[in-house]
Design a binder for these strands. Structure first.
Length: 764
DNA sequence: AGCACATGTTTTTTT
DNA sequence: AACATGTGCT
């Protein structure tokens, strides 16, 4: 009896092919994670491979933790080297800091720190941030790093003065990073690859050590990650990559599909195993997923299949407003729960952008259903938490000027811009970090008065903490920072509910520190800061299988839920406006967005609801979106359509009213009942018309509001009988006179008929 | 130094 | 709508 008896034949083949390179093309829900865990278990238990000789790389820390746990359940052995690329690199860079000539206390800069640094670099070069947005500079630098280009390479390849200038900015940015003893996310990978290149003797140790290397979500690896795999696997070549080209959704941050598409060229002796049997979703859901992804050109091509039944139809729900959409989601969840069919924890609501979570959250809050949000305002990005971490970071890495400046005057201690300015100049002259310059304040006599006094006490605070650091455990250190920095007093003095919440957050941070020191064998400050810096949103969401889960489609990668809602299926939202624009130039641009849609659909096991709204708030004003093109890619026979009106239409903002009044100037306008939302007018501004749904050609659209009293039995909402399909409900009327077309729902089928030819009769 | 107020920017997704 | 940055005032 082998562990592998629990797998199907393709899975088993993937798990037991341990020698040589192996590519596992694993479709959504095909048991990929299962294969990986069983493969590791098989190596340890049946091939007698010591667990330290196995390296497994996952996409999130959460996935790593789950895999570690399952392997332990199977074979009772802890696997030490399971983690993300970033955490593995951070760990290796620290472990080998001496060999690499690095300071192991290095700080990992997050997006905020990176932005702050770029701003400073722009200032230094007297570049107007209006003319060259910091975000654009960050993006270009990141792209260069993902291509393994250093500032010199970029300068050499520069065409024209603009690119030349960018290379200069990149160079300064990089110097500043190193000067602060800091790495950004990209650096962790590129530095690792470079250090291995420059120190083959160190690389050789790890090549020798890791007999077996497994990489999950290989379709989302970028160039440096690819190179790292190649370096580490070079000796034993027991390299197993698992991925799905159809689920590649991180090309925007440098993921390169070639890594998976060209695997067989890179490793000619590679074996390829395909997992196409889906164990997750019903037939209808799977068909829908296959149909949508079938519109992509750039793929290896595969078709998932299942032996489970067709299941329910997919619900397509047209909502009047984003608020109605949120209410629909909530009331549907409640119905499913009340009928005893599902628990709240069985359901997930997915969306394209985090901004969409707010309305959903408000409605969930009102409903009293338990819910949790993944991402959004992240715990470790709250100002008070970041401030506290900044103190700790500065203790770990006194060379970090960005961090120094973040907290030198937080809480307020009367150190203003001009004093910092002076200190900076002094530090620059004496080639010291700000922290070191502070320690030698006697060399800066022109700084006097209250500012000097404050700086001296700030210095004493830091030196005191640094001196006592060794005698304290992690949480004690956190507590000491909280109290002695004056942060606690500041929040207490504020005496507001908000300050109270912030105080609680800091207390929670300190209890995380306690937990960290209790659960780690070697809990040091660097390790804690590293873990915090490399957390994905999903990692910091505590496990709660009792609650409705709200998250972005990206965060949902790798997860599954019995019931899935995808909200905001609208053009310019999903796909995003940027993508829509870009796809005009580059048709392939739409493909990543479509893969994201595919990922979303395939998260659902049993029920899938796709919702979209005719009105939505974006950037604080009303917009009138069109249904997403991905909806029209769903085969009609798989869906059932519903409409959801807004029982309490929102008060229009002055800005929105202005726009609506401008749009609708028909004669009936003035007599529109105040309680009813203004029906969309056809013709004048089709893009701004309210709720409607279009299958193919752009139609003239009649208002769709239940109870429209035209007296005509062919209005939306009316029931009709068709000689062949029986009783049905009219969803939509388009066109005029003989060209009137009706969309009618007969049972679970939606049909579109031409009114003049279909022999329809009124029904109840 | 630090505040109140005004203006401008942002939403893509995340390690 | 929320947030960050900038300006002018005290």
């Amino acid at each position: 009896m082998s562990i592998l008896d629990h797998l199907n034949s393709a899975q088993r083949e993937a798990a037991q092919t341990v020698a040589g390179p192996l590519l596992v093309l694993a479709g959504a829900g095909s048991g990929k994670t299962r294969v990986l865990t069983y493969r590791i278990a098989h190596l340890i238990d049946e091939q007698n491979v010591p667990s330290w000789a196995i390296l497994a790389v996952t996409f999130t820390n959460k996935a790593a933790g789950e895999m570690r746990e399952r392997v332990e359940q199977l074979v009772g052995t802890q696997t030490r080297w399971i983690g993300t690329f970033h955490s593995m690199c951070a760990r290796l860079l620290r472990m080998e800091a001496e060999a690499f000539g690095l300071d192991p206390g290095f700080t990992i800069y997050d997006e905020d720190d990176r932005r702050a640094l770029v701003r400073r670099v722009l200032q230094q070069h007297q570049v107007d941030p209006q003319a060259l947005a910091p975000a654009a500079v960050i993006a270009r630098i990141s792209r260069a790093k993902n291509a393994m280009l250093d500032p010199g390479d970029m300068a050499a390849a520069a065409k024209g003065p603009a690119q030349q200038r960018l290379a200069t900015l990149y160079q300064t940015y990089q110097q500043e990073l190193r000067g602060n003893n800091a790495f950004d996310f990209d650096d962790l990978l590129t530095e690792m690859v470079r250090q291995f290149d420059q120190h083959p003797e160190v690389l050789a140790r790890y090549q020798e050590r890791f007999h077996y290397i497994l990489v999950d979500e290989y379709q989302d690896t970028n160039r440096p990650q690819y190179l790292l795999c190649r370096q580490l696997a070079a000796a034993h070549r027991n390299f197993c990559a698992v991925g799905d080209d159809d689920q590649s959704i991180y090309q925007f941050r440098g993921a390169d599909l070639r890594n998976i598409l060209d695997f067989e060229q890179d490793y000619p002796e590679a074996k390829v195993v395909r997992l196409e049997q889906n164990y997750r979703s019903t037939g209808h859901i799977l068909q829908a997923a296959n149909a949508v992804i079938g519109n992509n050109q750039d793929r290896k091509g595969k078709a998932l299949w299942t032996t489970s039944g067709p299941g329910e139809l997919i619900s397509l729900v047209q909502c009047e407003t984003d608020r109605a959409e949120a209410r629909y989601v909530v009331s549907t969840v409640r119905q499913l729960v009340e009928r005893g069919e599902y628990e709240p924890g069985d359901t997930a609501v997915l969306y394209r952008t985090n901004a969409q979570s707010r309305t959903l959250e408000e409605e969930l809050q009102r409903s009293g259903l338990p819910y949790q949000i993944v991402g959004g305002i992240r715990f470790y990005e709250r100002k008070e938490v970041k401030d506290m971490l900044a103190y700790l970071r500065l203790l770990a890495n006194p060379a970090d000027d960005v961090t120094f400046q973040r907290i030198v005057n937080v809480p307020r201690r009367g150190v203003g811009d001009s004093s910092i300015q002076r200190l900076r100049r002094y530090a620059a002259q004496s080639e010291l970090s700000l922290f070191a310059a502070l320690a030698r304040l006697e060399g800066l006599p022109e700084l006097r008065g209250p500012a000097r006094k404050s700086l001296v006490s700030f210095r004493d605070l830091l030196h005191g903490l640094a001196a006592e650091r060794q005698q304290m455990d992690l949480a004690e250190l956190g507590q000491a920072v909280y109290e002695r920095s004056g942060y606690q007093a500041m929040l207490q003095d504020e005496n507001t509910p908000e300050a109270e919440v912030r105080a609680q957050n800091i207390e929670q941070l300190i209890s995380f520190m306690t937990e960290f020191s209790q659960t780690r064998t070697d809990p040091d400050l660097n390790g804690f800061l590293e873990e915090v810096a490399l957390m994905a949103p999903i990692d910091e969401t505590p496990e709660n299988n009792q609650a409705v889960t709200l998250m972005t489609l990206h965060s949902a990668k790798g997860l599954e839920f019995p019931v899935v809602f995808i909200a905001g299926m609208e053009e310019n939202l999903f796909p995003t406006s940027r993508c829509v624009e870009e796809s005009r130039v580059n048709p392939l641009a739409m493909e990543e967005e479509r893969r994201l849609c595919y990922v979303g659909i395939t998260r659902a096991c049993e029920r899938l609801y796709l919702t979209y709204a005719g009105q939505r708030y974006a950037y604080g004003s009303l917009i009138y979106p069109e249904p997403s093109r991905f909806l029209s890619e769903l085969p009609e026979e798989l869906v059932t359509m519903q409409q959801e009106s807004d029982p309490q239409p929102r008060r229009r903002t002055p800005a929105a009213r202005h726009r609506l009044d401008g749009a609708a100037d028909g004669p009936n306008r003035a007599s529109t009942p105040p309680r009813r939302p203004a029906p969309a007018r056809s013709g004048a501004h089709p893009a701004r018309s309210g709720v409607h749904y279009e299958w193919d050609d752009p139609p003239a659209v009649e208002p769709v509001s239940p109870g429209t009293d035209t007296g005509d039995f062919m209005s939306p909402g009316c029931w009709v009988t068709h000689p062949r399909w029986g009783r049905g409900k009219i969803l939509l009327r388009e066109g005029h006179d003989e060209r009137t077309k009706l969309t009618i729902q007969f049972g679970s089928q939606v049909k579109k008929v031409v009114a003049a030819y279909a022999r329809l009769e009124p029904a109840g």
